[in-house]
């Protein structure tokens, strides 16, 4: 799960950077960068943090 989370985070960054090549339109690049950031945040707060919350010390 942690590796999947990391893959999601890095994938989000890759999306943002790929936007530089996918279009030359500034609006398009902004939109793709925002999408990449959203994917990255999901990886951090949804997947990685979710993994640690499932095993949280206060649940034991």
């Amino acid at each position: 799960m942690r590796l999947l989370g990391l893959a999601c985070i890095l994938g989000g960054w890759a999306i943002a950077v790929a936007g530089l090549f996918m279009t030359t339109a500034t609006t398009g690049r902004i939109f793709i960068a925002c999408a990449g950031i959203a994917v990255t945040l999901y990886g951090i707060l949804g997947m990685l943090n979710g993994y640690y919350l499932e095993r949280a010390i206060w649940k034991k």
Partner: peptide, 23 residues
């Protein structure tokens, strides 16, 4: 608007690469 795009790429790099390296 191009400057905003550059800043967003920076933010993506912070949350994507810097966080991952630290993690």
């Amino acid at each position: 608007a191009g400057q905003l795009a550059a800043q967003l790429i920076g933010i993506a790099t912070l949350v994507g690469i810097v966080f991952s390296l630290s993690f």
